[in-house]
Amino acid sequence: MAKPKVATTSLCGCFGCHMSLLDIDERILELVQLIDFDRSPINDIKSIEGPVDIGLIEGGCCNEENVKVLQDFRKHCKILISVGDCAINGGIPAMRNMVPLEECYEEAFLNGPTVVNPSGKVPDDEEIPLLLDQVYPCHEVVKVDYHLPGCPPSADTLWEALTALLTDRPVELSYELVKYD
């Protein structure tokens, strides 16, 4: 029987949650026995190939590309998990939600102290994804089955949730495993 497939990605995040996944230390050997990776920075596959059992999303949605990737994950993943505070509440990037979008663009492309932009215009390059009006938590964009909060969630939290799902146990996180920092 084929092993369950797991895909992971980071949207508007810092990859810290992925680092936390690596923090499961030697248990990663056990994990590799249990699963195969589809798209993930761990194997550098860039797009989802196909039906996936568990998708892990780090980061919230700050731009159109994030939405595209997230919708793609949702479409292909049986179970989708928001991993970390950014995915769950926007996290640090969501601090821009209290600033008008115009000011964000101006700071990034026109007025910021490190900006060199002779054109004096906000670039209209298609390679730069359009920003959303605000940073959205993942579950406000697509349905999300589980949330693992934390900045990042601890390796134990990730391990517990993953192994529970892979062994058909209910995901029941103990008090120590649900933390927001």
């Binding site: 979008l101 906000v122 209209d124 959303l132 009006d133």
Partner: peptide, 17 residues
């Protein structure tokens, strides 16, 4: 709705949507 402001500010359409 989420993209309309950015489309106005950059003067271009969305690639994906």
């Amino acid at each position: 709705t989420a993209l309309s402001q950015a489309q106005d500010l950059t003067g271009r359409e969305s690639v994906h949507f």
